[in-house]
Design a protein around this nucleic acid. Sequence first.
RNA 1: GGAUACGUAGCUCAGUUGGUUAGAGCGCACCGUUCACAUCGGUGAGGUCACAGGUUCGAAUCCUGUCGUGUCCACCA
Length: 871
Amino acid sequence: MKEIAKNFDAKQNETSLYEKWEKDGYFNPDNLVLEPTAPNYTIVLPPPNITDKLHLGHSAMLAIEDLFIRYHRMNGYRTLWLPGTDHAAIATQTVVEKKIQREEGKTRHQLGREVFLEKVWEFLGETQATILNQIRKMGASLDWSRLAFTLDEPRQRAVQEMFIRMYNDGLIYRGERIVNWCPRCHSTLADDEVEYIERAGKLYTFKYSADFPMAISTTRPETKLGDTAVAVNPKDERYKKYIGQIFEVNFCGVPLKIKIIADWNVDMEFGTGAVGVTPAHSMVDWAMGQANDLPIVKVINEEANIQSGFGEFSGLSSLAAREKIVEMLKTDNLMISEEDLTNNLSVCYRCNTPIEPLPSKQWFVAVDKPLARLGDKSLKQCALEAAKNKEIEFIPDRFEKKYTDWMTNLKDWCISRQIWFGHSIPVWYKGEEIFVGTEAPIGEAWIKDQDTLDTWFSSGMWTFSTLGWPDNFKTEKLNDLAKFHPTQVLETGYEIITLWVSRMIMMSYYAIGEIPFEKVYLHGMVLDKNGKKMSKSKGNGIDPLDMIEKYGADAVRLALTTGTTPGNDVKFYEEKIEVARNFVNKLWNIARFILGQLPDKVSEINKADLTLADAWILSRLENVKAEVSSLLEKYDFSVAGEILKIFTWDELADWYLEASKFIKSESSPAVLKKVLTEVVAMWHPFIPFVTETIWRELDQEKALIISNWPTKEDYINLEAEKRFDKVKEIIIAIRNVRSENKIEPSKKLPAMIVSADSDLKELATLITSLKTGLASLEFVDSYEAGVDAIYAKTAIASIWILGATDATTEKDRITKEIANLEKLVNLAEKKLANEDFVANAPRQLVDKEREKLDQYRNVIADYNNQLIKLS
RNA sequence: GGAUACGUAGCUCAGUUGGUUAGAGCGCACCGUUCACAUCGGUGAGGUCACAGGUUCGAAUCCUGUCGUGUCCACCA
């Protein structure tokens, strides 16, 4: 017998195992021995932001994807899981800026662009190493030879190429438009980077001047310096007569030309029913301005101050200007009312600074422009059709609707950002001239565009930029792009569908004319025990590395992959990992027990020579294999894990191993070994470390990570399953009777009547008798002297039904029991008399009902016999 | 305002096309350890499946409504 530790020592095994897997090259599909026809299975890792430490959300992602990957690798796929990290332009720049501010007390402007960027790269060097190490700790079987970074040299080339191609195809254009401007970050924000917070504000109602015919309401009087129109509802009787007129007014000393326009969006009930229109500083007003050909007057500049040309207001912050205007309006008796109001302030998602909507020159991707190469369809159309035709399948499918809704309403995508860190924009300017290309054109005075690209522009290319595009072509057989694209699954959080998933689909269509992935599996967020997002500031986060240190990576993985439902958030807390750790240890001890009793040479299984327990566990194993495989094919891994767990703990350990302790056939060792081998193999995608460790003890040729998933075999034996279930019921009934009667476990008693080989019907009757309390029982010593059959929980105990000792009380009891049973008989009869039930219900259900009825009747007959005897 | 998800045991959740007595883990109570595992084993208590209608032979499951919770999107002059 081998000497094996009592508990699985995760710390001692995990790191060395991972190193061994990696060293032996199992993570790289090029090294796998595969059938020539082996299908692909590729996942690109959603690249974690390089600023973050790994959090539990990442751990969940890694655990789930590694599960998919390991399952498919064992099933003979050409399996590639491609690692990478994201430069997360804005986030990274912000972090480094803060760091420099803290350590050196300098701003990035003080350092200058070049020095600042050097500092950023320095910072990234450190964090990258930390993150990759954390990923390894989770046991993620990623092909490190293909590691990518969204801002490394190959990706830079891909991004530049993409920009130039899209520009030449007319899909990228420069345009002026209102953007969400963060005055602190000095950058535009995409619509979905804007957040809203509720704030107490004031709604001011006033007239521009005494001679203006109507009052307007606003929360931001300072922007009114840029008003060029007043909009009213066309149905509004109060203002109808003014529509189309132009008024020249003097607003706080600033001359304005105000046209009265009609717009259906104006709510007649709100305020005065008249809205001042500021095309330069509001998205909605901009649209009205376009529709009515209004002039655009910019009031506020990029620092959120009033521009020059507005008299005494120029140079003031917008807030100061607001106060001054309010003051002047009051003095001039133009202010009609000031109401308190909570309004939704739009703020920057990074720094919470209020957004200034500003007109600005930016680069855009046209999403609605038809392209000949795509069959005169726009990027948006292609992306919508992919979901509609089920070329791309969402799991769970309700997210397809979210995707479609968002995609339908998608406006042109602003891709330029006014920050320093990120992909540069391959554009050069000379006065009004524009040149697009990686190198400056010949000649003097060309100036490079100073902006950088939206992070999502580069991560949108992630499935193919990581596979060698644009150097690789789909038509060439031997390169990664041809071999692995499109990928099979994108596994990511649902909150990122709009930001990322949709962009990947559009860009993949554009670059290579095909979908980037076949399935999108969406996991929920990992929340704390109270259902709140985990965050550093709240201090409610759980550090996965601490948990791995304490419980082992297997436990963390198991806790994150079971007890979840796709697309639903999970509340997570340490006890879950503890429970998972306990299971890992249970599996370890099952293996320890089985390995401890295997002879040196294990013979083949001889079907003719199986005990009931042998036949039962083999049959159950077959069922579980089929179920688990089919669930994993459907990506329903949580349920698959649950079924495996029930089989391993409740059936294998609690029943079969207990039975095997003293009832064995020649084949039993072979059965034990087979069940252990296959169970361990099925657990591998969930808990790779403990399973691989056990696998080594089983003296297998190949490492488990590249071994085959258990295949179907011919061991289904329904008769054995049925019989063993009955036997289990008997044992449980015996336990109960015994615990009520306080029979000493060690006490051996004579007599036997029923054995495990008895007729099923007899067994069933016996069970009912035991349950209803008719039979009291005592039992013989089992096959091995000294072992208590019940304690050992085996099915082989023999049972003696004893009559009652006290005739009168027994008579009463039996009479009562008969009455109870007759009620049950009535119920069953009534159900069977219902023609609809018999006709419509599944046959098994009806049969079961009949069986029950028979059973009750048999017991009643028994009782009656007893009664006769007693009297 | 629009969308979407959810409401099942004290807690965290399963419950896959409607079908036996609604399940699990944790927690709780009681019993148990020379036995592979106390990171263990056994037994038990605990549920009007949010509420109200409807469809059906049959509803936690389907439909309608109400209440409550979460999330996303839009918008707020």
